[in-house]
Simulated assay, not measured.
Amino acid sequence: MQRIKQGDEVIVTTGKDKGRRGKVMSILKNDRVMVENINVVKKHTKPNPMAGVEGGIIEKEMSIHISNIMPFNPASNKGDRIGIKTLEDGKKIRVFKSNNENVDV
C-alpha cells in the first residue's frame, strides 16, 4: 500500500518551495510526484506553426521527489508521517502516526 496517493494534500519539506502546500496530481516512476503549483519553472519554447505551438516563455510544473514531501495533517496543521493499520476484517487503512486518525476520511 502506498503511503502517498493521488489527491492527497501534501506539504513540501525541503527546497525552494519549503512550507507550501498542494494536492498530488500524479505519481510518476522513480519515486517522483507532480504537485499542483509546486516546483514551477519557466521553459523557453520555440514556435512550431505546423503543430500550432506558440513560442515564448511558459510556466510549467515539474516533478518533485517523494522524499521531499509529507502528507498534511489538518488536525495539527503540520506534515505528518503515515502508518498502515490492519482492521479486524483484513482491510488496510492509512493512519497518521501522531494521532492515529484515518487519512482517508
Rank of each mutant, 00 (worst) to 15 (best):
P74N: 13
E61F: 04
E36N: 15
N37Y: 13
R3Q: 12
E88F: 03
N48H: 13
G15T: 03
G15Y: 00
A51Q: 12
K16V: 01
E61H: 09
S98C: 14
N99V: 04
G56K: 05
V41W: 01
I69G: 02
R32V: 00
N102P: 03
I69H: 03
G79N: 10
M70H: 12
I11E: 12
V95E: 15
M50C: 09
P49S: 11
E101F: 09
S76G: 06
V10G: 00
P47S: 15
I58C: 08
V35F: 03
M1G: 13
Q2V: 06
N77A: 04
K91L: 09
K46A: 11
R32G: 00
V33R: 01
I27T: 07
V103D: 11
H65T: 07
N73P: 08
G83P: 06
E36Q: 02
I64L: 11
E61Y: 07
G15V: 00
S63T: 02
G19Q: 01
V53D: 04
V35W: 00
K85C: 05
K42W: 02
G22V: 14
G90K: 03
V24Q: 07
R21H: 05
V35Y: 00
T86A: 04
K92S: 14
E59M: 12
K97S: 09
T45A: 08
F72Y: 15
N30D: 03
E36Y: 08
G79H: 03
I84M: 08
K18W: 09
I58A: 09
I82S: 01
N73A: 11
V40S: 06
H65K: 10
